[in-house]
Simulated assay, not measured.
Amino acid sequence: MIFDSAKNLDFYRGLGIEGRYGKAVDFLQNTDLENLAPGKYEIDGKNVYANVTEYTTIPWEEAKYESHHDYTDIQYMITGTETMTYAPVDALNVTVPYNEEKDCVLYDNANPGLKVVVGAGEYMIFNPWDGHKPKAADGEPAPIKKVIVKIKEN
Rank of each mutant, 00 (worst) to 15 (best):
121 G>N: 04
90 D>E: 14
93 N>Y: 09
124 M>K: 06
114 L>K: 15
88 P>Q: 14
126 F>V: 04
92 L>M: 10
148 I>H: 04
106 L>H: 06
111 N>T: 08
130 D>Q: 02
117 V>G: 12
147 V>F: 09
121 G>C: 11
101 E>R: 05
94 V>H: 07
124 M>Q: 09
94 V>I: 09
102 K>D: 05
90 D>H: 14
87 A>P: 01
151 I>H: 00
86 Y>N: 02
144 I>K: 05
103 D>K: 06
105 V>E: 08
143 P>I: 02
119 G>H: 12
107 Y>M: 12
97 P>A: 13
133 K>N: 03
124 M>A: 08
146 K>R: 10
93 N>F: 10
133 K>I: 02
147 V>H: 10
141 P>M: 12
108 D>P: 06
137 A>E: 05
130 D>M: 05
142 A>G: 05
144 I>V: 00
133 K>S: 01
85 T>M: 09
94 V>S: 08
139 G>M: 11
106 L>G: 00
112 P>G: 01
114 L>H: 13
127 N>V: 14
89 V>A: 10
98 Y>H: 08
88 P>A: 15
123 Y>F: 14
132 H>P: 06
150 K>L: 10
145 K>P: 00
150 K>A: 07
141 P>L: 13
143 P>E: 10
125 I>D: 03
139 G>F: 09
125 I>W: 04
146 K>F: 08
124 M>V: 02
129 W>V: 15
151 I>M: 07
119 G>W: 13
143 P>G: 10
